[in-house]
Protein backbone atom coordinates (compact mmCIF):
# COMPACT_ATOMS: atom_id res chain seq x y z
CA UNK A 1 0.00 0.00 0.00
CA UNK A 2 2.62 2.49 1.07
CA UNK A 3 4.77 1.77 -1.91
CA UNK A 4 1.79 2.26 -4.23
CA UNK A 5 1.37 5.75 -2.73
CA UNK A 6 5.06 6.52 -3.28
CA UNK A 7 4.84 5.18 -6.87
CA UNK A 8 1.83 7.37 -7.68
CA UNK A 9 3.55 10.35 -6.06
CA UNK A 10 6.62 9.84 -8.23
CA UNK A 11 4.57 9.13 -11.37
CA UNK A 12 2.42 12.20 -10.76
CA UNK A 13 5.44 14.37 -10.05
CA UNK A 14 7.11 13.25 -13.29
CA UNK A 15 3.93 14.12 -15.26
CA UNK A 16 3.83 17.59 -13.68
CA UNK A 17 7.48 18.18 -14.64
CA UNK A 18 6.86 16.85 -18.15
CA UNK A 19 3.81 19.12 -18.60
CA UNK A 20 5.77 22.19 -17.48
CA UNK A 21 8.60 21.27 -19.87
CA UNK A 22 6.10 20.87 -22.75
CA UNK A 23 4.59 24.30 -22.16
CA UNK A 24 8.08 25.79 -21.99
CA UNK A 25 9.19 24.04 -25.18
CA UNK A 26 6.11 24.57 -27.40
CA UNK A 27 4.64 27.79 -25.96
CA UNK A 28 7.61 29.57 -24.32
CA UNK A 29 5.52 29.81 -21.16
CA UNK A 30 5.97 28.88 -17.52
CA UNK A 31 3.27 26.56 -16.17
CA UNK A 32 2.17 28.82 -13.32
CA UNK A 33 -1.48 28.07 -12.67
CA UNK A 34 -2.34 31.26 -10.75
CA UNK A 35 -0.85 33.55 -13.43
CA UNK A 36 -2.42 31.54 -16.24
CA UNK A 37 -5.86 31.55 -14.61
CA UNK A 38 -5.75 35.23 -13.55
CA UNK A 39 -4.83 36.19 -17.13
CA UNK A 40 -8.32 35.30 -18.39
CA UNK A 41 -9.78 38.20 -16.34
CA UNK A 42 -9.86 41.89 -17.41
CA UNK A 43 -7.80 43.91 -18.26
CA UNK A 44 -7.63 41.54 -21.26
CA UNK A 45 -4.42 41.06 -23.18
CA UNK A 46 -3.99 39.43 -26.57
CA UNK A 47 -3.10 36.04 -25.14
CA UNK A 48 -6.31 34.59 -23.70
CA UNK A 49 -6.50 31.64 -26.12
CA UNK A 50 -3.68 29.43 -24.88
CA UNK A 51 -4.71 30.15 -21.26
CA UNK A 52 -8.24 28.85 -21.82
CA UNK A 53 -6.93 25.74 -23.61
CA UNK A 54 -4.44 25.04 -20.80
CA UNK A 55 -7.11 25.47 -18.12
CA UNK A 56 -9.57 23.31 -20.09
CA UNK A 57 -6.99 20.53 -20.25
CA UNK A 58 -6.24 20.92 -16.55
CA UNK A 59 -9.89 20.61 -15.49
CA UNK A 60 -10.66 17.78 -17.96
CA UNK A 61 -7.83 15.67 -16.53
CA UNK A 62 -10.09 14.54 -13.68
CA UNK A 63 -12.91 13.09 -15.85
CA UNK A 64 -10.24 11.58 -18.16
CA UNK A 65 -8.61 9.81 -15.19
CA UNK A 66 -12.04 8.51 -14.11
CA UNK A 67 -12.67 7.30 -17.67
CA UNK A 68 -9.37 5.42 -17.59
CA UNK A 69 -10.56 3.60 -14.47
CA UNK A 70 -8.77 5.73 -11.86
CA UNK A 71 -10.18 7.39 -8.77
CA UNK A 72 -10.05 11.15 -8.22
CA UNK A 73 -9.62 11.83 -4.51
CA UNK A 74 -11.07 15.15 -3.37
CA UNK A 75 -12.26 15.55 0.20
CA UNK A 76 -12.97 18.92 1.84
CA UNK A 77 -13.40 19.15 5.62
CA UNK A 78 -13.34 22.94 6.08
CA UNK A 79 -16.68 24.82 6.33
CA UNK A 80 -17.82 27.02 3.41
CA UNK A 81 -17.01 30.31 5.16
CA UNK A 82 -13.42 29.15 5.70
CA UNK A 83 -13.20 28.04 2.06
CA UNK A 84 -14.43 31.49 0.93
CA UNK A 85 -11.85 33.35 3.04
CA UNK A 86 -9.11 30.93 1.98
CA UNK A 87 -10.01 31.36 -1.71
CA UNK A 88 -9.74 35.14 -1.43
CA UNK A 89 -6.35 34.89 0.31
CA UNK A 90 -5.03 32.38 -2.25
CA UNK A 91 -6.26 34.46 -5.21
CA UNK A 92 -4.94 37.79 -3.97
CA UNK A 93 -1.78 36.39 -2.37
CA UNK A 94 -0.61 34.39 -5.39
CA UNK A 95 -0.97 37.42 -7.66
CA UNK A 96 0.78 39.76 -5.23
CA UNK A 97 3.57 37.22 -4.74
CA UNK A 98 3.78 36.55 -8.50
CA UNK A 99 3.16 32.81 -8.36
CA UNK A 100 1.88 29.76 -6.52
CA UNK A 101 3.01 26.18 -5.87
CA UNK A 102 3.42 25.56 -9.61
CA UNK A 103 4.93 28.87 -10.79
CA UNK A 104 7.29 29.44 -7.87
CA UNK A 105 7.45 25.98 -6.29
CA UNK A 106 8.16 24.04 -9.49
CA UNK A 107 8.95 26.26 -12.51
CA UNK A 108 10.80 28.96 -10.56
CA UNK A 109 12.83 26.64 -8.32
CA UNK A 110 13.73 24.49 -11.37
CA UNK A 111 15.30 27.68 -12.77
CA UNK A 112 17.05 28.26 -9.43
CA UNK A 113 15.29 31.62 -9.06
CA UNK A 114 16.05 33.20 -5.67
CA UNK A 115 12.63 34.86 -5.65
CA UNK A 116 10.90 31.52 -6.15
CA UNK A 117 12.95 29.77 -3.48
CA UNK A 118 12.15 32.54 -0.97
CA UNK A 119 8.46 32.57 -1.98
CA UNK A 120 8.14 28.78 -1.66
CA UNK A 121 9.85 28.64 1.74
CA UNK A 122 7.57 31.45 2.90
CA UNK A 123 4.24 30.05 1.76
CA UNK A 124 5.15 26.58 3.04
CA UNK A 125 5.99 28.15 6.42
CA UNK A 126 2.84 30.28 6.76
CA UNK A 127 0.73 27.33 5.56
CA UNK A 128 2.38 25.07 8.16
CA UNK A 129 1.84 27.64 10.93
CA UNK A 130 -1.81 28.08 9.88
CA UNK A 131 -2.45 24.32 10.00
CA UNK A 132 -0.69 24.11 13.37
CA UNK A 133 -2.82 26.91 14.84
CA UNK A 134 -6.07 25.47 13.45
CA UNK A 135 -5.38 21.88 14.55
CA UNK A 136 -3.26 22.19 17.68
CA UNK A 137 -3.31 25.86 18.72
CA UNK A 138 -6.79 26.53 20.06
Amino acid sequence: MTYLIILSALGGGALIGLAAAMLLFFNNRTAGISGTAAGILPPWQQDTGWRLWFLAGLVLSAPLWTLLGGTVHIQIDAPLTVMAIAGLLVGYGTRLGGGCTSGHGICGIARLSVRSIVATLLFMTTAGITVFLVRHGF
Partner: peptide, 27 residues
Protein backbone atom coordinates in the same frame (compact mmCIF):
# COMPACT_ATOMS: atom_id res chain seq x y z
CA UNK B 1 6.78 38.83 -3.06
CA UNK B 2 7.09 38.40 0.69
CA UNK B 3 3.63 39.65 1.68
CA UNK B 4 1.89 37.91 -1.24
CA UNK B 5 3.52 34.55 -0.57
CA UNK B 6 2.78 34.81 3.16
CA UNK B 7 -0.90 35.59 2.44
CA UNK B 8 -1.13 32.73 -0.07
CA UNK B 9 0.29 30.30 2.49
CA UNK B 10 -2.37 31.25 5.06
CA UNK B 11 -5.13 30.55 2.52
CA UNK B 12 -3.45 27.30 1.49
CA UNK B 13 -3.17 26.20 5.13
CA UNK B 14 -6.83 27.04 5.84
CA UNK B 15 -8.18 25.10 2.87
CA UNK B 16 -5.58 22.65 1.54
CA UNK B 17 -6.22 24.08 -1.95
CA UNK B 18 -3.71 25.90 -4.13
CA UNK B 19 -4.84 27.20 -7.55
CA UNK B 20 -4.29 24.08 -9.72
CA UNK B 21 -6.04 21.56 -7.45
CA UNK B 22 -8.79 24.15 -6.78
CA UNK B 23 -9.63 24.31 -10.50
CA UNK B 24 -9.64 20.52 -10.82
CA UNK B 25 -11.83 20.48 -7.70
CA UNK B 26 -14.58 22.09 -9.80
CA UNK B 27 -15.24 18.61 -11.26
Amino acid sequence: LISGSAIFGIGWGLSGFCPGPALIGLT
